[in-house]
Every structure is written in C-alpha cells, then in structure tokens.
C-alpha cells in the first residue's frame, strides 16, 4: 500500500465505502429482526447488541461516503440517510449472504460465523488503508468484530455439539448458505483499482486464513464443511436475491413517504 490517494478517483472510494455500509446495514437489519424473538431474553439483548454494532459500522461508512460526495459535488446536504434510504435494490452492493432471510437460530448462527470471521480478517487489513477515515473505522469496528467472532464460535459449538436436532439444523444451515460465502473473496475492477492504490482490501488474499479458521470451528463443533461445488455471486454488482427488495421496502418506506422530511 504505497501509492497516494491523490491519483484515485473519488467516486471509487465513495462506491467502496457505500458497499461496506451496505453489508453492515443489511446484516444489522437481519439481526435486529431477532429482537423480541430470541430463544431467551439474554439473547434478545445480545443479538440487539450485535445489530447495533453493525448499524454503527454502516453509519460510519455511509457518513464517509456522504462527506466525499459533498466534497465532490460542492453540496452539503448529502447524509448517511441518502445511502440507506434513497437507493434501490439494483444500487445496493452488499454481499448476498447478508441479505438472505432471517431463518432460524441455527441459520443466523451459521451466517454470523462466516461473516464475523471474514470481518475480523477483513478489518485487520482495512486498518492499513491509505484512506485515513476507512482505517480509523476499521480500528473501531475490529474490536467489535473480535467479540462477534467469539460469540459465533461459542454458539456454533453449542449448537453443533448440542442435541441431535441442533446438530442437524446447524448442518442444514451451513449447507444452505455455504455457496454464498465465495463472493466474499472476489475483487472486481473497482476494488482492484483501490487495491492498487492501497485503499481497499484485497479480499482474494483472505480466503485461506478464513477457511482455515472457519473449518477448525466447524469441525470442533462436530459438523462438516459443506461441498465446495456451488457458488452464487453478484451482490457487488447489484445482482441480488429476491430477499433484498423486501428488506429495502420495509426499511425505506417511512423515509420515502415523506420526501425531504427531517426525523
């Protein structure tokens, strides 16, 4: 990471920050759906906590994107909310894994395991970004990601090595989502430009460590790493599953019903 950010197209950084914000807001939304529906009250609190962490990350990424947008356009009125509330399904660029439905508690646990371990490794690298704001966000978010990882690991062990029902549910969940994990490690043209400029993380380099760590946890939980023979991708290009449209409909409806209103 050596080149200067001067040579970089600002729009690329805006898009990149917005993508990271999209990942965070979408998974935060899914986690928040658990509040009042958790298996016991301690988990309502814990899932709410993790949802709040992701919401916080989304706000930091979007605010960065908004500030850069204002600089670029000579405006002052673009905010985090423009990114969350006023973009459509085709404009959202989150990874598909994040948007899949809420599912049961095993599904949520399996998904969080894959995402949290990814985030931990991703944020360690983002800390080194030449974009000082992104680096600072990563420092803050990495602390939370470590806690998220520990939590997901604990739950994977409990469910995988709990009862035969919980074991079966965990295995089914992993099988159901595994094919969505591959796109976490893709880098498209936009990200490659930013990787070259020392701003974005080269996700292709994260796969080996991620797989090693996730495999160890899955195996300790007496579960099996699913077959590698299917892969779905397209989130970063706005090519989404049908889940995202409904999520955005719900999330954006009040905001869009009152154009220009303050809340």
């Amino acid at each position: 990471m050596t080149s200067s950010t001067e040579t970089v197209n600002k729009q690329d950084i805006i898009d990149y920050a917005a993508r990271l914000g999209d990942d965070a807001i979408v998974i935060g939304h899914r986690l928040s759906e658990w509040v009042s529906r958790a298996p016991f009250v301690e988990e309502d609190v814990a899932l709410g906590n993790v949802a709040l962490d992701f919401l916080g990350h989304a706000r930091m990424y979007y605010t960065h994107a908004a500030e850069l947008s204002n600089e670029q356009n000579g405006t002052t009125d673009i905010t985090e909310d423009n990114f969350a509330y006023l973009r459509d399904e085709r404009q959202f660029q989150n990874h598909l894994l994040h948007e899949l439905h809420k599912g049961d508690f095993a599904y949520t646990t399996a998904r969080q395991l894959l995402i949290d371990v990814f985030n931990k490794h991703f944020l360690e690298q983002l800390k080194k970004s030449n974009d000082k704001t992104l680096a600072a966000i990563a420092v803050k978010a990495a602390k939370e990601a470590k806690y998220h990882c520990r939590r997901s690991q604990d739950w994977t062990l409990r469910l995988g090595d709990g009862t035969s029902e919980s074991h079966e549910r965990m295995q089914l969940a992993l099988n159901d989502i595994w094919g969505y994990s591959h796109e976490l490690f893709e880098v498209d043209a936009l990200e490659q430009r930013l990787v070259d400029a020392g701003i974005a993380v080269d996700c292709t380099l994260l796969k080996a460590d991620w797989l090693k760590e996730v495999t160890a946890i899955i195996e300790e939980a007496t579960l099996m790493v699913p077959d590698q023979d299917w892969a779905v991708s397209g989130g970063r290009q706005g090519y989404h599953t049908e889940h995202l449209g409904h999520l955005l409909t719900e999330m954006q409806f009040v905001h869009r019903s009152f154009p220009g209103a303050k809340w």
Binding site: R37, A38, P39, F105, T163, E165, S166
Partner: peptide, 8 residues
C-alpha cells in the same frame, strides 16, 4: 421456537 436452542 427457542426450545431446541435452550435444549442444545
């Protein structure tokens, strides 16, 4: 829906 989780 949480019963199996608590059991596990």
């Amino acid at each position: 829906e949480g019963a199996w989780v608590r059991d596990a």
